[in-house]
Amino acid sequence: MDKSNSSALRQLNSMVLITILTQIFILLKNALVASHFGVGIELDAYNLSFNITNFVYSFIGAGISTVIIPFLKEKSNKTALNIFITFIYTVSIIIFIFMLLFKNQIIAIAGGSNGIEFINIASNIFVYTLISGILNALIKFANAVLEFKGQFNRQKMIVLFTSIIFVLLLFFFKDISIYDFALILLVTTFISFIAHFYFLKRTNFDFNINFDINNDGFKQMLRLYIPTMMSSGVYQLSLLIDTMISARLDVGSISILNYANSVIGMINMLLLANLTSFMYPRLVKKSNEIDQQKSLIHYILLTNTLMCLIFVLFFIIGREGITILFERGKFYK
């Protein structure tokens, strides 16, 4: 047991280290974006398109790990898993086609009366973000399997690798348009997609398309998935509402909101996402409910303690931290 705990601790430490490196590059990316685009209409249009896509596909991807991981434990659940995966990603494709066909109307409703130029830019970028969104939804599935197999650090290394590529492209290409930026996002997402499914294939995970929605196991998975999806989607809904309100304010309001959310997202990714992805499969694999409850209590106490420390840190850093991160280039002007 001591060896197991020691190995788990080393794995968690590695995850945190990789995530810290990743967040450093994400901070560099945000600083470069601020320098390239500031808080103008182009970045507002991109952020609106991205946030709409992220809202829709967060509903699909958010509950995947929560539902799939317990069902990976038993081989008897294989048929239900196949049906569930087939159903969820068929719905994803239908949503993708619908949003692609009605992209102008969706942007016009979400963006309010922001003018023809804003709607045209956002609608054109929407194609890039939609493709990235459905790829990320598929990546969520690959992540769930890799987490169950204990391969936490492989997916973290993929995120680090693609973040480095993103930053290098932004650094070396000085005069990029907002469309170039959206294309870079799509390319790095596609690289991440290929890498995730390469490692997924190496786990010998086998999948077969199955549309038998009358299967009892599938119905059970769907019952678990819907409340998980809705609870995760509430947060994304609040972000989308904030974005839609910002779209009706002065030019640059959406971008400023997105910069602020990126700082908060960095903390969520560094602490909550790491701890959740690490602890949840371990809780599922525990043999009895008492051990699961004890581990869950320790996890909650650890998370709350860390979040309190982070809350204090935000007040200490304050205005100076934002200045160091963003105030240069077009953002400063």
Rank of each mutant, 00 (worst) to 15 (best):
A195N: 11
S65F: 09
P70Y: 10
S6A: 12
G111D: 06
R248Y: 00
L239H: 10
N143H: 04
I83S: 02
K75P: 10
V67L: 05
R154M: 06
F50K: 01
Q292M: 10
Y46I: 06
M221Y: 06
L130I: 02
Y225H: 08
A137S: 13
R223F: 03
T228Y: 01
N120W: 08
V127L: 11
V39N: 03
T19F: 00
F152D: 01
I68V: 15
F311E: 01
E147M: 10
L168I: 15
A62L: 12
G252M: 10
G318H: 13
T90H: 07
G111Y: 04
N288V: 10
F84S: 02
A182G: 03
A273T: 12
F84M: 12
L271G: 04
Q236S: 14
I125T: 06
T19C: 11
L200K: 10
Y259M: 04
A31Q: 12
I264D: 07
S4C: 08
I131L: 14
L138Y: 09
L222E: 00
L100M: 15
L32Q: 07
Q23R: 15
I158E: 01
T19W: 03
A144W: 00
F172D: 08
N153E: 02
T129D: 04
T189F: 01
T66L: 14
K29H: 13
L270T: 12
A122P: 10
D291K: 08
D44W: 03
I60W: 04
L325W: 09
R328I: 11
V234K: 08
G329N: 07
K294S: 11
K75L: 08
V127A: 08
K103G: 05
D44C: 06
R282E: 05
G252V: 10
I107D: 02
S76V: 13
R10S: 06
A62R: 01
I184C: 11
N54Y: 12
F326D: 02
L32S: 12
G329Q: 13
M157A: 11
V251Y: 03
F98T: 15
R328P: 04
F102S: 10
I317K: 01
S123P: 11
A45G: 13
F50N: 05
Q292Y: 02
D206N: 15
D250A: 14
L186H: 02
N143W: 02
L72C: 11
L170H: 07
I267K: 00
G63R: 04
I85G: 00
E74V: 05
Q292S: 06
S65H: 12
F96K: 00
L32Y: 08
F96Q: 00
I164L: 06
N204Q: 15
R10P: 01
F161A: 03
F197Q: 05
G63V: 03
G133R: 04
V127H: 07
P227D: 08
V167A: 13
D212F: 09
